[in-house]
Each structure stands twice: as C-alpha cells, then as structure tokens.
Design a protein around this nucleic acid. Sequence first.
DNA 1: TCGCACACGTTATAGCATAACGCAATTGAT
DNA 2: ATCAATTGCGTTATGCTATAACGTGTGCGA
Lengths: 131, 131
Amino acid sequence: MGTPQLTKNQSLVMGALAHSDGPMSAYTILDKLRDHGFRAPLQVYRALDKLLEYGLVHRLESLNAFVACTCPHEHEHDHGVTAFTICEGCGQVTEFHDEAIEERLSSLVRTQNFKTEKTTIEIRGHCKSCA
Amino acid sequence: MGTPQLTKNQSLVMGALAHSDGPMSAYTILDKLRDHGFRAPLQVYRALDKLLEYGLVHRLESLNAFVACTCPHEHEHDHGVTAFTICEGCGQVTEFHDEAIEERLSSLVRTQNFKTEKTTIEIRGHCKSCA
DNA sequence: TCGCACACGTTATAGCATAACGCAATTGAT
DNA sequence: ATCAATTGCGTTATGCTATAACGTGTGCGA
C-alpha cells in the first residue's frame, strides 16, 4: 500500500506543485502544463485525485487550491491530522501536525459518536513578515 | 458593536438558513427565495457577507455552503474558534467550541509568529445514525 | 483471448463567486 | 436645508472551480 509509480500526468502535476512557492489552483496548474500537452481541467483533476489519495498533495479548502505535502517521509503510513497556516499577504502556506490537537479533537468527536474520515484545519492570517 | 437590524434581504437569507435542516449553498438559497423577489446570486452573497460579519452565519469551506450559527447568545462578543462535524451521510452539521484546542492552536501559531485572523476546523465523517 | 481495470483525451455542462454599472435611501456634518 | 458619504439594492455579464459522459488505448490475469 505504498505510493505506486506515478503516471506521466501525475508526475507533471506533482512537479508543478513541488516547484511552486505556494498553493496553486487546478486551473493555474493547467496553464503551467499547457506546454506539456495539457488541454483540459480533467487532466489536472484526475492527477490531483490520485496525488491526494497517495498523500503527496493536500487540498486547501479555504482557497480551492492545492499544495505539495512538505512531510516527505510520512507518505507511507497515513498519519493524523494536517493543519495549515495560510498568509493572506504573501500566500505562504505552512503545514504542521500536532498530536495534542489530534487527540483532543478525536475525543470531542467521540462524545458525538461521530466517525471521522477527514479533518480540515486551516488558519488564515498574516505571517511574521507580512504582519 | 452589536448586531444591527437586518435588512429585508438579510432577514430572508437568515430565515432560509435558520429553517433549513442543514447547510445550503448560495444558489440553493437563491432558489428558495425566488418567490420573495430574489433573482440574482449577488443578492444572496451580499446578504451572506453581512450575516457572516455579524456572526449569525458560518461558512463551511469544505462544502462551499452556509449554516446558521447555533450559538445564539455568542453573537455579541466575538468568541474564539468554531469547529464543525459534517456527516457525509445525512448532511447534518454540528457546531462546537473548545477552549483547549483554541489555546493549543494559538500557542502553536505563536511559535511561527503568525497572526491568526480566521480559523477553520471541519471534520468530515459519519454521524452516529449514519455510521 | 477475453474481460477487466485503469489511465487518458475531449466536449460539454454544472456549480460557485464576483466585477462593474447605476439607482435609491439614509445619515450626518456644515 | 443641503451636500457628501455610506449603504443597500438590482441587473447584466463574466470568471473561476469542478464534474458528467463519452470513447480510446494499454496492460494484465483468468
């Protein structure tokens, strides 16, 4: 259940995200990859779906955009919750993980008898430089 | 700095959300309000902007949808972080607040010298009945 | 070699959100 | 009272985000 070999399209999308400074929308990725033969949104979305499934990419719900995962070693075992700070000034996104939050959330949710499938934590604000 | 009197459009949108079982998209709200004279998305979005500002409504980023706030007394003093469980089965959304998470997040973010403006916590999964 | 799973390509369409214009009503300072 | 600023409103048009539905090709195990 490791990460399979990426297809050509998946590699291209992954590369675009990995070399980007910040998050990119699917359509921005599409534009970057037109020279490589991309012509339609679905080519991007299909690749993104797989990359998300493999844990190589995260979706930022509050931006409708995508970032490469910055925790390259964790792709094997699906680890817990991923959280992000997102700077409204420079667009910088920082990924972080915290066991305490994870446990607290899991405990709160358990009291509802709720079964978690995916947790989104996104903090919008301004980074040190943009304050 | 309390909540001002709502305008007609704001009241209509608020009413639609308050009487709804679950979250609604802006376009769904629009359809519900056509009989009351609504004709264009902007009428809904403008009302929603104000309702969000007043804290009467929350936006669910992972659904592109909106819900009425279920903590009617807290609208005065802008309180901390709001979190949601969202059932993929029945669509039920439950709002909750937790100081521990709030403090933990605030502490983590402080180590980045990041200034928080808005925090999104959304937990997708299945509720007790839909498990 | 048949059937299945999967990636791919294309066209069309659906769903979410805002830009830009102008008008009307309200408020508040001069 | 009047002018300016603000706010809400309505309309048209447009842009951004995401998926449906169709067909093609390829690899691989039964």
